[in-house]
């Protein structure tokens, strides 16, 4: 029995009013992701100009955690460089899997994305929150195969 409320107000807000939740014409990068365990499906679209992520959208179906995570991801990454986005991916991965390296090792703060940190104590939900991020990584790498959380 866990005490912490997983569904922070921030998560419910992004679930009810997802940002950047639509398809995209002529994306420079896109990928599909699936969570085979629960049937969640997500698409991530990006327009990268030079190194900058000018636009980032998502669409798909899934639980509140997966939808909110995708929405918050798009909000956080718009305007960042691809390199920065991959750094955020690493930090989010650390946060979601509950691995906390020494604070001295550099800035681990993730701002609003920290609302997702509660997921770490629910191992069955980590894949819900990480689906959007794995799909993003797959899009940036332009992998041919759809991303999966497996």
């Amino acid at each position: 029995m866990k005490d912490q409320e997983l569904y922070q107000e921030m998560i419910l807000d992004h679930y009810r009013n997802p940002r950047n939740c639509c398809s995209m014409e002529n994306p420079t990068h896109c990928a599909e992701g699936d969570n085979p365990l629960c049937g969640d499906h997500l698409e991530v679209f990006l327009k990268v100009d030079g190194k900058i992520i000018q636009e980032i959208n998502f669409q798909g179906s899934g639980c509140a955690v997966s939808q909110a995570s995708a929405s918050m991801m798009t909000e956080n990454l718009k305007g960042r460089t691809v390199e920065e986005a991959l750094e955020v991916f690493d930090k989010v991965h650390v946060m979601l899997t509950g691995y906390h390296p020494d604070e001295e090792e550099g800035d681990k703060s993730l701002g609003k994305l920290e609302a997702l940190s509660g997921v770490a104590q629910f191992p069955m939900r980590i894949k819900c929150a990480s689906l959007a991020w794995h799909t993003l990584k797959s899009a940036l790498k332009e992998e041919a195969e759809p991303a999966t959380t497996e």
Binding site: M1, G62, C63, V65
Partner: peptide
């Protein structure tokens, strides 16, 4: 409500 969210709340 998505089934995962339902099952999570029920688990709580």
């Amino acid at each position: 409500a998505h089934p995962h969210d339902i099952a999570h709340e029920l688990a709580m």
